[in-house]
């Protein structure tokens, strides 16, 4: 088995998760809540994308943009309706509200869209690299022949694009700098004249846009149904927490760790345990919380 090939798979999986995990973790950092309904934001994005691609004569990239806008709008509306009014109550009530909202949204989508899975119509090309030498260590090959598909490249490309855009946003724009300031110390930011509500709204929109993109990416690889996003929420959450909640750069690192763990443990765990790969991801999360409770990026989460 080629290690390199599995690393590629892990990086692709990590890229899906990363796009979503950034949105998740930004909300965590600025609004100070774990949003359990975030998986449904992905689902909404996937449906908007599918509907656009299916009804309008536009190419897929345009449909993706529409899905991102749709995700952003949905996120802002939901935040205004459900989260902003209880902003002051603290993390636990907000977490529980998001659980309730998630149940409601998921079933509402099922009610409206029905139960059948739908598919994006895409073509995939495969690029193969042969003649790569095996570098054997015991039973494993470190290199070996490998392939990538156009889908892989699109996903990783989107993720890298998001990372660059995000970095630019956070370091070069007023809104981004204000976001970082608020993430560090909200009171201080308010004293310095930051309109905290406006920043919160921008974060909600940004999170929704990213969820829309992630939703379509996941949907192209799998399908669109009421459970599309929900089935990935735990991985997104694990990646965000692993990276140190609130830190977008940490979330990126956390996502790739989760992606690699999923892929490598599926490939290399002893027989009969391969399906435990998702449990492995959680095990890593628990271990990281114990060893370095602040996550990969430093922020204290331990109280005593």
């Amino acid at each position: 088995m080629g290690l390199l090939q599995n690393v590629i798979f892990g990086l692709v999986t990590g890229s899906y998760i990363a796009v979503a995990a950034i949105g998740f973790t930004l909300v965590y950092g600025i609004v100070n809540m774990i949003n359990f309904a975030y998986g449904e934001y992905l689902t909404v994005g996937a449906f908007v994308g599918l509907l656009t691609a299916g009804t309008l004569p536009v190419p897929l990239p345009v449909a993706v943009l529409v899905a991102m806008v749709g995700g952003g709008v949905a996120s802002l509306v939901l935040a205004r309706l459900f989260f902003t009014p209880i902003n002051h109550t603290g993390p636990v009530p907000m977490l529980l509200t998001s659980i309730g909202l998630g149940i409601a949204l998921r079933n509402l989508i099922r009610l409206v869209a029905g139960r059948n899975a739908r598919y994006f119509d895409t073509e995939t090309a495969t690029f193969r690299l042969t003649g790569v030498p095996d570098v054997s260590v015991g039973p494993f090959d470190l290199l070996g022949d490998f392939f990538v598909t156009s889908e892989h490249l699109v996903v990783v490309g989107c993720a890298v694009g998001v990372f660059l855009a995000l970095h630019g946003l956070l370091t070069r724009t007023d809104v981004g700098i204000a976001m970082r300031a608020m993430g560090d110390d909200e009171d201080l930011a308010r004293v310095r004249g930051v309109d905290t509500q406006r920043i919160r709204d921008s974060v909600w929109v940004l999170a929704g846009v990213l969820a829309g993109l992630a939703g379509v990416l996941v949907a192209i690889q799998t399908n669109v149904s009421a459970g599309t996003g929900y089935s990935h929420i735990l991985q997104i959450l694990a990646a965000a927490i692993l990276g140190g909640a609130g830190s977008p750069y940490g979330a990126i690192a956390g996502s790739y760790i989760i992606g690699l763990v999923l892929s490598l443990s599926t490939a290399f765990l002893p027989g009969g345990m391969a399906e435990l790969s998702s449990a492995m991801a959680f095990l890593i999360l628990v271990v990281v919380l114990l060893v370095k409770p602040s996550g990969l990026a430093a922020r204290e989460v331990r109280e005593a």
Binding site: I34, P91, V92, L95, L234, L237, A238, I241, A245, F282, L283, L285, V286, L289, P293, V301, R302, E303, A304
Partner: peptide, 13 residues
């Protein structure tokens, strides 16, 4: 010893 919401995540996991 974890903070509230992180304890939630650890127990959930």
């Amino acid at each position: 010893r974890l903070r509230d919401d992180f304890l939630a995540v650890a127990t959930l996991a």
